[in-house]
Every structure is written in C-alpha cells, then in structure tokens.
Amino acid sequence: MIHDQEPEVVAVWHTASAIGRHFEELPADGTVYTWAGPPLGETHCPGEDAPDYNPTSL
C-alpha cells in the first residue's frame, strides 16, 4: 500500500438507538475508526434547525 492511499475497508458496523448513532470501520491494516452522530432527524448542535442559524457566526 502506498502511504497516501486509504486502506481497504473490510468491515463496517452501524448501530442506532434513541440516544444516537454509532459507526465503526475496520480497514485491512487492523486499525479501527469510530465516530458517532445524533439520532436520525436531530441536529448536531442545538439551534442548527433554527431559521436564523448561521454557522459562520459561531
């Protein structure tokens, strides 16, 4: 594998519950990448769905 190439992903897990979503990826090199997100339909930060929300003013 060349250094600037992404390793091949051999497995992906995704779970969802009332408190959020959780993702895991297992590349061929043996590392594990995990991340989480809000429940479906919810925003990452409070107020993101407000009509006057402007992310550049934060």
Score class of each variant (00 low, 15 high):
Glu42Lys: 10
Ala50Pro: 00
Ala50Ser: 11
Gly30Leu: 07
Thr43Val: 01
Trp13Ala: 14
Arg21Asp: 04
Gly20Ile: 02
His22Glu: 13
Ala18Leu: 13
His22Ile: 09
Asp52Asn: 15
Leu58Arg: 09
Ser57Trp: 01
Ala18Met: 12
Gly30Ala: 06
Ala11Val: 04
Glu48Gly: 04
Arg21Ala: 05
Asn54Leu: 08
Trp35Ala: 11
Val12Glu: 08
Phe23Thr: 01
Ala50Met: 08
Met1Tyr: 09
Asn54Thr: 10
Val9Phe: 11
Tyr33Trp: 12
Glu42Ser: 07
Val9Asp: 07
Tyr33Ala: 14
Asp49His: 00
Glu42Ala: 15
Ala11Leu: 12
Leu26Cys: 01
Ala16Ser: 14
Thr56Ser: 09
Pro7Ile: 06
Leu40Ser: 12
His14Arg: 13
Asp52Lys: 12
Pro51Asp: 14
Ala11Cys: 05
Thr31Gln: 14
Thr31Phe: 12
Glu25Phe: 12
Ala36Gly: 13
Pro55Ile: 04
Pro39Trp: 01
Glu25His: 00
Glu48Asn: 01
Pro51Phe: 06
Pro39Phe: 03
Asn54Lys: 12
Ala16Leu: 00
His44Ser: 07
Leu40Arg: 06
Thr31Asp: 11
His3Leu: 09
Val10Asn: 07
Phe23Arg: 01
Pro39Leu: 04
Glu48Met: 12
Gly20Ala: 00
Arg21Glu: 07
Val32Asn: 03
Tyr33Leu: 14
Gly41Asp: 04
Asp29Cys: 14
Asp29Ile: 06
Ala11His: 11
Trp13Tyr: 09
Ser57Glu: 12
Pro39Tyr: 01
Leu26Thr: 05
Asp52Trp: 11
Val12Met: 09
Gly41Pro: 03
Leu26Glu: 02
Met1Ile: 10
Asp52Ala: 15
Pro39Lys: 05
Thr15Cys: 07
Ala11Asn: 08
His14Thr: 06
Ala36His: 09
Pro51Trp: 06
Thr56Arg: 04
Gly47Ile: 00
Gly20His: 04
Gln5Thr: 07
Pro7Trp: 02
Ala11Met: 10
Gly37Ile: 01
Val9Cys: 10
Leu40Lys: 12
Thr34Tyr: 04
Pro27Trp: 06
Asn54Ala: 13
Pro7Ser: 11
Pro46Phe: 02
Glu48Arg: 00
Val32Lys: 14
Ser17Arg: 14
